[in-house]
Simulated scan of single mutants.
Amino acid sequence: MRILVALGGNALLKRGEPMTHARQRANVAKAAAVMARVIEAGHDLVITHGNGPQVGLLALQSAAGPKASAQPLDVLDAESEGMIGYLIERELRSRLPGREIATLLTQVRVDGADPSFAAPTKPIGPTYSESAARELAAANDWTIAPDGHGWRRVVASPEPVEVLEARAIGLLLAEGVIAICAGGGGIPVVRQVNGWLTGIEGVIDKDASSALLAQHVGADLLILATDVEGLFEAFGTPRQRLIPTVRAHDLTLDDLPAGSMRPKAKAAADFVRATGRSAVIGALDDVEALAEGARGTRFLP
């Protein structure tokens, strides 16, 4: 079975953990061990990953230097894609000697008129108290929003229109290469009227890009791996209950948080509606069981 596994940025750098290289490396090692077992079970794997915590940290580091050297978000997206892809690839190569693995910087075309540029929703970087977030927002001209128990910077998250390296990724898969690609949702670019590509400030939702790429590469299953076990009814209350299955055509998104579970549910439903195949949302540690249909929330036609 060909499976596209989208690793959440918060699964690789968990909420509340120190944003250190050692912690991220340890989490990547755990993720790679799970991925390796799925590959050893005979599945073809395409791996994508988020970058919300990481790209936000890179943005803080960039802003701390001389103003003229500050990098735009599309360049920081590329940096985070290379950084996280390298860590995943290194860990997988150690566990799968003899297998071909490639990390591919991936550009994703978006619409420069996408409404998200006027209404940012994508959380990036560390979590702050409300007062600290408001101070930073005033000092740095940020947009901020609640995220879980804290506040974070939010940026534009335009809809992906086209994965520009989709054909190249397909060629890698045809040769048996494990592809790590579309990291952080890919690098957002727009096509000008003369056909030239230019980068644009934003962070594409990783799950939306993964759903689109999964269609392009003919994935049999889309797994959206995160830091929770799936979709819950009455989440965060004593009445919370895991929802084991969802019919994609019956899904309503209004009750799901805009910056976290809503884009995952939308991406899963979009993939199922477009392909007639299935998708599942669940915990990173459960990926083997997610592939077997034993855990998580499964989206069905």
Rank of each mutant, 00 (worst) to 15 (best):
R2Q: 13
G8W: 00
N10Q: 03
L12A: 00
P18Y: 02
T20M: 00
T20P: 00
A22V: 08
A22W: 03
R23C: 07
V28P: 00
V34W: 10
R37L: 14
I39K: 15
H43T: 12
H43Q: 15
L45V: 15
I47P: 04
I47N: 08
H49L: 10
G50P: 04
G50H: 03
G52A: 14
V55M: 13
V55E: 10
S62Y: 05
A64K: 14
G65M: 09
P66F: 12
P66D: 14
S69G: 12
Q71C: 11
D74A: 13
E79H: 11
S80Y: 00
I84R: 00
G85P: 01
I88S: 01
R93M: 06
S94P: 04
P97G: 04
V110P: 02
D111Q: 08
P120D: 02
T121I: 13
G125W: 01
Y128T: 06
A132D: 14
R134M: 12
E135Y: 10
N140I: 10
W142H: 04
G150H: 04
G150S: 06
W151L: 05
R153G: 02
R153A: 01
V154P: 03
P160C: 08
V161S: 15
V161M: 15
V161R: 15
E162Q: 15
L164Y: 11
E165D: 08
R167C: 10
I180N: 02
A182M: 06
A182I: 06
G186H: 03
P188N: 07
P188H: 06
G195H: 10
I200C: 05
I204L: 09
I204T: 02
I204S: 02
D205H: 05
D207W: 06
A208P: 08
S209W: 03
Q215L: 14
V217A: 10
L221W: 09
T226F: 06
G230R: 05
F232T: 11
A234G: 12
F235I: 12
T237D: 09
P238H: 12
P238K: 13
R241M: 11
I243H: 05
V246D: 01
V246W: 00
V246G: 01
H249C: 11
D250T: 12
D250A: 13
T252G: 13
L253D: 06
P257N: 03
A258Y: 03
M261A: 03
P263G: 02
A265S: 07
A268D: 06
A268N: 09
F271V: 05
R273Y: 09
G282D: 07
L284M: 15
L290S: 05
A291I: 05
T297D: 03
P301Q: 11
